[in-house]
């Protein structure tokens, strides 16, 4: 039995040739908790769409992959007018810790992992993590000091070379 609007099942175009070979490079340059997530979320989303994704951690973004800091990034109201709170409040003792724990709870409530686990998920999804050579040298850090999934400490030119043709995000 057929009806007039019955048709063979359409098939979603999961393998659109237009996106084949698409590459994304994300430069993470910030070490605040709130600024760590945009890069991680976008990388995760890109990988889920089959896009080859490389992240480069540089300057303050190095804190995102350094073992001693990556689980302890902070969020502060200071200098961030988007909290819409009096700036003076942000300078009171304990305010950064309070703001950080509130943000961490909000993130966890959405089932979004903490930074170290998020990095693991990105690598499990096929993503690549690269550490900036200059940042490592400035902080006297070696690969042993970094998240175990970091593929290597490379120069800015190496990163530019290996992301040839990629779309780029600077965060």
């Amino acid at each position: 039995m057929t009806t007039t609007d019955t048709a063979p099942a359409p098939v979603p175009s999961f393998d659109d040739p237009g996106t084949e070979g698409r590459k994304l490079a994300i430069i993470c340059s910030k070490g605040n908790l709130d600024m760590a997530y945009p890069g991680l979320i976008l990388a995760n989303a890109a990988l889920g769409e089959g896009v080859e994704t490389h992240l480069f951690f540089t300057f303050w973004g190095f804190d995102m992959i350094t073992r001693s800091t990556m689980g302890d990034l902070k969020f502060t109201m200071l200098g961030n007018t988007a909290t819409h709170m009096p700036q003076g409040l942000g300078g009171l003792p304990g305010m950064t810790a309070l703001a950080t724990s509130k943000m961490k709870k909000a993130i966890a409530d959405l089932d979004v992992p903490e930074v170290p686990e998020f990095l693991e998920q990105i690598v499990a999804s096929g993503g690549h993590l690269w550490a900036c050579r200059l940042s490592a040298d400035m902080n006297h850090l070696t690969e042993e000091d970094l998240h175990e999934e970091v593929e290597g400490i490379i120069s800015a030119s190496d990163f530019i070379e290996l992301t040839n043709g990629a779309q780029l995000l600077f965060i």
């Binding site: 057929t2 009806t3 609007d5 019955t6 048709a7 063979p8 099942a9 359409p10």
Partner: peptide, 8 residues
């Protein structure tokens, strides 16, 4: 909205 047919 379409009604699709597949494998019966």
């Amino acid at each position: 909205m379409t009604i699709a047919t597949l494998a019966g």
